[in-house]
Design a protein around this nucleic acid. Structure first.
Length: 266
DNA sequence: AAAGGCGCCAACCGCAGTGTC
DNA sequence: TGACACTGCGGTTGGCGCCTT
């Protein structure tokens, strides 16, 4: 599965990471943080280049890294965001907590790309139906009172999470573009709730994370100008993605609602 | 049972953007 | 302001494991 370990001409180790190396890197970063990737391997006692350490940490060793078993919401988000952002894997990853850009990229090439290529119209149709539904829903919402708590997205999300399992799983079939059922996914009420909470969290994180006083995170993910309240090219780049991510969040909410009402989509 | 092909994923590589001197 | 260093991103590759023949 992984490349056999070997040493390059500079004496740097390449290829698969050993458990011992993982432990060294993990314990060093947990203790001291990653202040300088280039220098880090020397201090951590690793014969690796900084890049390799960084990649290993981000894609594998970070405590919050989620592995395998993509939920259908995650897949939907990836498909939707990829349609709007293209191969901006880091942007897509920003809206999927615990998933690395590399992981998402691999999942796209291994699974989702084939599905969308096999039946692109099915995806497009679904997108359009969601947009149409969103439009109707917006109009309906405007007719109701603004003070109603039940109109808040979080309330609706919680409502939809109370759905019986059968209803939820059957209505996700459009994601399976070759008409084969999605395998390995057990859509449960708990999953639904957890995923939606995750999505809410992710959207919330998108706004709040730049201001978290975790110097590691700020140093590596956001330009200082953001924390300073200034403006930069990088900020505009982030802003560019916000709309798409927000739209994708709405799409996910939409099909949760659709699942709630079996008469909306057939 | 063995061989070959394919899928998947960890890891590498090169380039671009940003920061620092 | 230009050169250099560092970091992050996206494309690509190597190779293990599973599946098919």
């Amino acid at each position: 599965m992984v490349r056999a370990p070997f040493y390059d001409k500079n004496g740097l180790k390449k290829g698969a990471w050993s458990v011992e190396e993982d432990n060294k890197l993990r314990s060093y970063i947990q203790r001291f943080g990653h202040w300088n990737w280039r220098e880090l391997p020397k201090f951590a006692g690793l014969s690796r280049c900084g890049k390799s350490c960084r990649l290993r940490w981000l894609n594998y060793l970070q405590p919050n890294v989620k592995r395998g078993n993509y939920t259908e919401e995650e897949e939907f988000m990836i498909i939707k965001l990829h349609e709007e952002l293209g191969n901006k894997w880091s942007m897509i990853a920003a809206s999927l907590p615990g998933r690395s850009d590399n992981d998402i990229k691999n999942h796209w090439h291994a699974h989702l790309k084939k599905r969308t290529m096999k039946n692109p119209t099915a995806l497009k149709m679904k997108m359009l139906s969601n947009e149409a539904y969103q439009h109707d829903a917006d109009i309906a919402r405007k007719t109701e009172t603004d003070s109603s708590v039940s109109n808040s997205p979080s309330f609706q999300i919680q409502e939809s999470s109370q759905l019986p399992q059968e209803t939820s799983s059957s209505d996700f079939s459009y994601l399976s573009f070759d008409n084969a059922p999605l395998s390995g996914i057990n859509w449960t009420t708990e999953d639904s709730l957890a995923t939606l909470e995750t999505l809410e969290q992710s959207f919330s994180d998108f706004w709040t994370e730049p201001f978290i006083l975790d110097n590691t995170y700020v140093q590596n993910n956001y330009p200082e100008s953001l924390a300073d309240g200034g403006f930069s090219a990088s900020q505009s780049c982030y802003n560019e993605g916000i709309d798409s991510i927000y739209e994708a969040m709405q799409e996910v909410e939409n099909y949760q609602r659709i699942n709630e009402d079996p008469y909306l989509v057939n």
